[in-house]
C-alpha cells in the first residue's frame, strides 16, 4: 500500500519505532520460548493479519508454500530426533519415534510458519523508507547509499529494456537464434548500459557535489512524526513484551520438551501470559480492523 493511501489509524501509519518494536518483539519471543500456546497464537494472528492485508494472495502463499514447508519440518523432526521417553513406534531403521519429538516437530513447524508469516506482513507494512529512517538515525551516509541503490536498480533495468528495444528496432542482434548469438547480444546490452551508467554517475556526482554533499556533517530527514498514538502504541508494546519476558525469567512459566513434555507454572500465570501474548500478537490486526470500522463510519460523514 502506498504511503498516501494508508488509513491514518492503521498499524502501517505508525511511526517506524513502534513498527520495528512490534516485529522485533513478536519474532524474538516466538523463537525464544517455543511455548506451544504462544506459538499457536502467534501463527494464527500472523496468518489472520496476512489474510486481512492481502486476502487471496496471502491464502495462496499459506497453502502452496507455507503449509508444505511446515509439514516437512513437522515430519522430519521425529524421523531424525529420537530423544524423549514416550515411544510411539519403531521405524524400519530400528530407531524409535517419540511423542516428545513429534510435539517438538510440530512446535518447530509452527515457529517457522509464524516467523515467515510475520516477515510476510513486515514486507507489506514496513516499506524501505522506514528501514532507511532507522539507519539514517544511526549512520546517515549508509541510509543515503541504500536510498541510491534502491533508485539504481529500476533505473538500470528500465535502461536495459530501452536498449534491447532500440537494438531490435534497428534489427541488431536477435537475428540469430543460437545461444552464442543471444549471449553476445546480452553482452552488448550490458556494455551499453554500463557505459551509460558511468556517464549518468558522473552527472549524479556533479549534482551531489553541487548540493553540498561531502561538505560536512549530514543530517537525515524523514516524513515520520512520533504522534501521541505512536507513543501509546510503543508504550503498550514495551509493557506487554516486558511482561512476557518477566513470566519466563522469574520461572513463573516454563516449557520443556525433553525428556518429557512439560508446561510448568501455576494455571493463573499460564492464563495471564496467554492473555498478554494474545493482546500483543493481535495488536496490529485489532488496530487495522478498528481503523477500518471507524473509517467506514467517518467516510459516511464526508
Amino acid at each position: 500500500m502506498s504511503q498516501e493511501n494508508r488509513p491514518p489509524g492503521s498499524f502501517e501509519a505508525l511511526h517506524p519505532v513502534p513498527g520495528f518494536a512490534f516485529f522485533g518483539l513478536v519474532v524474538l519471543l516466538t523463537v525464544l520460548y517455543m511455548h506451544p500456546v504462544m506459538l499457536g497464537v502467534s501463527f494464527c494472528c500472523a496468518a489472520a493479519w496476512a489474510l486481512y492485508l492481502r486476502r487471496g494472495r496471502a491464502l495462496r502463499f499459506i497453502l502452496t508454500l507455507l503449509l508444505p514447508v511446515m509439514l516437512l519440518a513437522a515430519v522430519l523432526n521425529p524421523a531424525f530426533n529420537h530423544r524423549g521417553v514416550t515411544i510411539l513406534f519403531y521405524l524400519f531403521t530400528g530407531n524409535p519415534v517419540t511423542a516428545e519429538s513429534l510435539y517438538y516437530g510440530v512446535a518447530g513447524a509452527l515457529m517457522i510458519g509464524a516467523v515467515l508469516l510475520w516477515f510476510y506482513c513486515y514486507n507489506l507494512v514496513m516499506p524501505s523508507d522506514k528501514l532507511l529512517w532507522l539507519l539514517g538515525r544511526a549512520v546517515p551516509t549508509l541510509a543515503l547509499v541504500l536510498s541510491m541503490a534502491l533508485r539504481l536498480v529500476p533505473h538500470y533495468t528500465a535502461q536495459a529494456k530501452r536498449v534491447a528495444a532500440a537494438r531490435a528496432g534497428l534489427g541488431l542482434g536477435r537475428t540469430a537464434a543460437s545461444v552464442v548469438a543471444r549471449a553476445r547480444e546480452g553482452l552488448s546490452i550490458l556494455s551499453v548500459v554500463t557505459t551509460w551508467a558511468l556517464e549518468s554517475a558522473v552527472g549524479t556526482a556533479d549534482s551531489m557535489a553541487s548540493r553540498g554533499f561531502g561538505t560536512g556533517r549530514r543530517t537525515a530527514y524523514s516524513t515520520y512524526h512520533m504522534t501521541r498514538r505512536s507513543w501509546l502504541a510503543l508504550a503498550f508494546l514495551v509493557l506487554a513484551g516486558a511482561a512476557c519476558v518477566v513470566f519466563f525469567a522469574t520461572g513463573a512459566v516454563s516449557v520443556a520438551y525433553f525428556p518429557r513434555f512439560e508446561l510448568g507454572g501455576a494455571p493463573l500465570a499460564q492464563a495471564a501470559l496467554c492473555v498478554i501474548w494474545c493482546a500483543l500478537c493481535a495488536f496490529p490486526l485489532v488496530l487495522d480492523l478498528a481503523e477500518e470500522v471507524s473509517w467506514r463510519s467517518s467516510r459516511l460523514r464526508i
Binding site: 541510491m148 534502491l150 533505473h155 549524479t204 556533479d206
Partner: peptide, 8 residues
C-alpha cells in the same frame, strides 16, 4: 535523470 540522487 542523472541529477536525481535518491529514490523518493
Amino acid at each position: 535523470e542523472s541529477q536525481l540522487v535518491t529514490d523518493t
